[in-house]
Each structure stands twice: as C-alpha cells, then as structure tokens.
Computed example of a mutant assay.
Amino acid sequence: MAAIPVSTLLTCRLYAQVATPSDPLVLESGRVLKSVTLCYEVFGRLSPERDNAILVCHALTGDSHVAGRYRADDPKPGWWDDAVGPGKALDTDRYCVICSNVIGGCQGSTGPSSANPDTGRPYGLDFPIVTPRDMVRAQARLLDQLGIRRLVAVIGGSLGAMQALEWAATYPNRMQGVISIGGAGRLHPQAIAFNEVQRQAILNDPDFRGGQYYGTPGPVRGLAIARMLGMITYRSDESMWAQFGRDVRGPGNALQRGFDVTFQVESYLHYQGQKLVERFDANSYLYLTRAMDLMDLGRGRGSYEAAHGLIKARVLAVGIRSDLLFPSYLQQETVRLVRAAGGHAEYLEMDSPWGHDAFLVDFPLIAEPIRRFLDSLERTDGA
C-alpha cells in the first residue's frame, strides 16, 4: 500500500482501515477481526524522511486527542496538553506526534459498540477479547500505512505504558526508545482485583442487557460505580487529604443526612462517575480493563524475564512515588530485567502526591528528564 502523502499529516481525527476481509487481524486469542478501523490524530509535521515520529499510547479511558487547542479551530482540550505541543517535551516543532484510539475502545476505533460485519448489529459481548499486544499489532499496521518504519520513541502511561513495553518486545527494531510511565509488563494481582470489582458493577447492572444495551440508556449506574472505584485507585491517601480532607458538602448537619452525599470526596466520586457515563461505552470499559489484566510480556516468549531480552530500544521507566495502582517497584523491576538481559534501561521516579494520576496532572515534574532522554536517543542514533 502506498504511504499517505506527508503533506496530509498535519490535521486532527483521521481514520485508517488496518484490517479487511482479505487481510484480517488475527488476535492473540486466535479470534479474527475481519474489519478494523483505527481513529488517529497527528500533531506536528512528518519529516520527508519520515524519521521524526513519536507514538503516544493512551490509558484506559483516553483517546487519540492527546493535544488540544493545537489548531485555532480546535477548542477541545487534550488529555496530555502538558506534554505535547510546540516547545514542550514532545515538541511538535521537532517531532511528529501520533496517537490512535485502541481497538476495543469507543472513540472512533473498532470496538464492541461497532457494527459486527456478520450481523450488522453492534458487537456487544460478541466482540473478541483483545490484549495490549493486539492493540500494538493494529498500531503497527497504521504506521505501515503512514510509511513510518522506525519511530523515535513510543511513550505512554498506565495501559499506554503497557502498550509501549509491548511495542519494544514485539517490534524491537522499530523504535529508538521507549518511555513507560506508571506501567509494567504485567499487572499485579491487587490491580486485577480492582478491575474485577469494577466489571462486576457493570455486569450486574440490570440495564446491561447482556451487553446489547445499544439504543437504550445502558448500564449507567454500573459504569458510574466502576469509575468511582477506579478513581480511588488513581489517587493516593495523601492527595485525598490535600484536596478534600473531611470537608462536608454544603451547609447543614452531617449527622442528619443519612446516606445522602455528605463529604466532598463523595461528591467528587459521583461527579467523575457521571462524567464518564456521558462519554464512554460500558462494554469498552469491560474489554479494556480485561486487556490490562491479560497483559503479560512473557506470554509465548519463554518467560517473563526472557521477554525483556527482546527489547533493543533504550528504556526509560518512570515510577510514581504515591502510585497505588502501579507501585513503583513494578517500574524498577522493568529496569532490572532489561539490564539483566543486556539492554539499556534507566529509572526515574516522580515525587508526586497525586498517585497514578500524576502522569496526567503532574507531568511538568518529568518534562525535562523526558526531553533529555529524547535528545539522547538522537545522539545515540546518529553516533
């Protein structure tokens, strides 16, 4: 397939057909997707040599809109505005930054809310289970269409960090560097437990209708509760005290409110739950949390330790001091295993009280180290 012209790659929200009935996407499970569309966005201009691209992989409820207000006619903020843009760590005057919505998502890419070509109806729970490795293989097809054979780096936080590490093991010659923030090559059991409780909140909502709720309001209560629990795992006790303490919401006697929303922290959780219901598909929440559970860099590669020996890119693993969901020992383990296999890896810790959310809300703390790491990739590649 001919590469997309360079002149077209300065825009927002594009679509690529990365699997067709004649060239389907075979998943890790053995299931096949006959048709796959990826929604992606591009920030910055691709060089004529197509050698200045950075791939950003998004987290659980993220999307392709990594940078907002990038153009005068784009009023929507991006989820990583602190990181991507002119003069920022991912400098769009220097790099071409690409971000795609993952398969299984609900922001333009093929997922459970998409039409099943065999039935014409939304897949619902007929959508196959996907893994971060499947997401990466779909992204690789997108880059093939864009004519990008080698990336400067792959970067992401949380589920995005998992994809970044999977990129390094699956396509070791396609990037110079990998930046994994608050992620790991496999999920620890406590995080799997958190995910299962969130899924049960959705699955047990009477409005879930076996996953075929499209055309109805859907499992809004279950999804909101799932998000409420998720938000607790994204924060730290330290940040909860700093932002909410034990403050009571509004006037009146807390003792007389019964089970009504009383504390500010309760109000915050209800607000976050409602916000997600308005923009996200419950089935995608099920599939993407399960994808995180199933992440295992070592699957089919001999062992977890052996898989790190496949990584040829330079690795920057970023831990977050107060992270409950991906404790910093996981990122330190990544560095240890890459080094033990003879690779190059370094560890950076964010001294942030914001828990797992720090990679989003406190990115300036690591902006300069990431800029230096990207600079070092160019020097190494040119040596």
Rank of each mutant, 00 (worst) to 15 (best):
L288C: 06
A317C: 10
R314K: 14
F263T: 03
G250E: 07
D63Q: 01
V56F: 08
R149W: 04
L187V: 14
P48Y: 00
A313R: 01
Q212A: 14
G298D: 05
E346M: 12
D323E: 08
D144L: 08
G111M: 07
L27I: 04
R71H: 11
L159T: 08
A168W: 07
R186S: 08
I202G: 00
F259V: 14
D74N: 10
L14W: 10
E368F: 09
D91S: 02
Q163L: 12
L276Q: 05
R149K: 15
A367C: 10
Y213K: 11
R13V: 12
Y15C: 11
L60K: 03
Y234G: 00
A2P: 15
W167I: 10
E349R: 09
A306L: 09
T334H: 04
F359Y: 11
A115T: 15
R221F: 14
G157M: 13
D63F: 00
N173V: 13
I225W: 09
S158N: 13
V26F: 08
A242C: 05
L142I: 07
P122A: 08
D375M: 05
G319P: 10
Y214N: 06
T61Q: 05
A193K: 05
L276P: 09
W167E: 00
E346R: 13
G44C: 03
C99L: 09
K34D: 06
C99N: 07
G105R: 01
L297M: 05
D91P: 12
I148E: 11
S7K: 08
A340N: 10
D375Q: 06
D296G: 02
L310F: 04
E41W: 04
D93P: 13
A2G: 12
G222E: 10
L33R: 02
L25S: 01
M292V: 09
D144I: 07
K275Y: 09
D362Y: 01
D207S: 15
L374Y: 05
A72G: 12
F259G: 12
L286C: 05
V136K: 05
T233I: 08
E196D: 13
R372K: 12
A317P: 03
R301W: 01
G211Q: 07
V152P: 03
